[in-house]
Structures are given as structure tokens and as C-alpha cells.
């Protein structure tokens, strides 16, 4: 049984990596070279957090690091800082997954996005302390609110498209 699961897990991890690549690709296409009118939401965090709450094996921490570090390199962000914030934030989600599963969805929504907000603040704090030029704060604020709105939609989408649901609380031992 476990062997069967671990065989499929590679496929699912691959799918997650492919999704991250798609996002990177979308960002790199030189369609408009003007500064963005509407800041982009953090789709990747939503997807990975939703996965970690439901099936943490699909997004092990090394995959998270690989994905965010690649994005850091390609998107001209300060190397490592955002990856570090995201890694710690997603580990925080992972540590709380049993408790989150036992609560209502609205609780999950609040916790996951509060952790994201903390990560965002820590990230800006690190950059401020080390005197790095940052994009304006308003962009981050707007992006955060769009992310908040997007999270339930993504969870719903993952559940309907890929059947990614919370494991039954009764079988906790089996599904980890």
C-alpha cells in the first residue's frame, strides 16, 4: 500500500513542479514591459499551502526550496530571502496541519493567510534592515488582499479538479 502511494507521489510532485514552472513562464513572457497595473497574487503559496494541509507528502520541504529558489533566480528577486520566508511559513502550516484539519475551513483560511502575512512582514523587514530597494508597499498590500480572496477558490479548484480533499480525521494514522 505504501509502495503504491509513493509511486504516485513522484507524479504529483512532478505536477506541482510543472505548475510552478508554468507560473514562472507566465511571468517571464515579454508581453507587457510596463510596470504592472494590478499586482499579481501569490498563487504558488496558496496552492502549496492547500496541498500541505491536505497531502503534505506532495510538497516536501526540498521541493518547496527548489521551486522558490528557482523563482528567486529567474525573477530578479533578492536571492534566498523570499525562499527562506516561504520555507518557514510553509513549515509552520505543516506543523499545524492536524489541528487545521480538525477545524472548519474558515479557520484554515485565516491561519494560512495570517502565516503568509507574517512571512510578508518578515521579508520586508529583512530587506529594510539590509537596505535593499523594495517595490512600493501598496503593491504588496493589494497583492495580499487578492491572495486572501483567491485562497478558497484555489482550494475549491484543487478539490474538484484533482480530488484533493482533507483526509478523514478517523484515518489520521494512515494518511499521515
Amino acid at each position: 500500500m505504501t509502495a503504491e502511494i509513493s509511486k504516485f507521489i513522484w507524479v504529483k510532485q512532478g505536477a506541482l513542479a510543472a505548475f510552478a514552472f508554468l507560473i514562472l513562464f507566465y511571468n517571464l513572457i515579454p508581453v507587457s514591459l510596463t510596470p504592472d497595473d494590478l499586482p499579481k497574487p501569490d498563487l504558488l503559496y496558496c496552492v502549496i499551502a492547500a496541498i500541505i494541509v491536505r497531502r503534505p507528502q506532495i510538497a516536501p520541504f526540498w521541493l518547496v526550496v527548489a521551486i522558490f529558489l528557482t523563482l528567486d533566480i529567474f525573477l530578479q528577486r533578492p536571492l534566498g530571502a523570499w525562499t527562506l520566508c516561504m520555507l518557514l511559513a510553509l513549515e509552520a502550516v505543516r506543523a499545524r496541519r492536524y489541528f487545521i484539519r480538525s477545524q472548519l475551513f474558515s479557520y484554515e483560511w485565516v491561519v494560512v493567510l495570517l502565516i503568509y502575512l507574517v512571512a510578508l512582514i518578515v521579508f520586508r523587514f529583512i530587506l529594510t534592515v539590509s537596505l535593499v530597494a523594495m517595490p512600493p508597499l501598496s503593491a504588496d498590500v493589494i497583492s495580499f488582499f487578492i491572495t486572501v480572496v483567491l485562497y478558497p477558490i484555489i482550494v475549491f479548484g484543487l478539490a474538484t479538479l484533482f480530488g484533493l480533499r482533507r483526509p478523514n480525521t478517523g484515518k489520521r494514522g494512515e494518511t499521515q
Binding site: P39, L75, Q76
Partner: peptide
């Protein structure tokens, strides 16, 4: 010819 966009608000470049 421009190949790619920087793709993030951190740097407006190509």
C-alpha cells in the same frame, strides 16, 4: 531583440 521580461516588481528590466 528582447528575450524575456524580468517578471517581478523588483526590477523593471528585460
Amino acid at each position: 531583440v528582447i528575450l524575456t521580461d524580468a517578471g517581478s516588481p523588483f526590477s523593471q528590466s528585460a
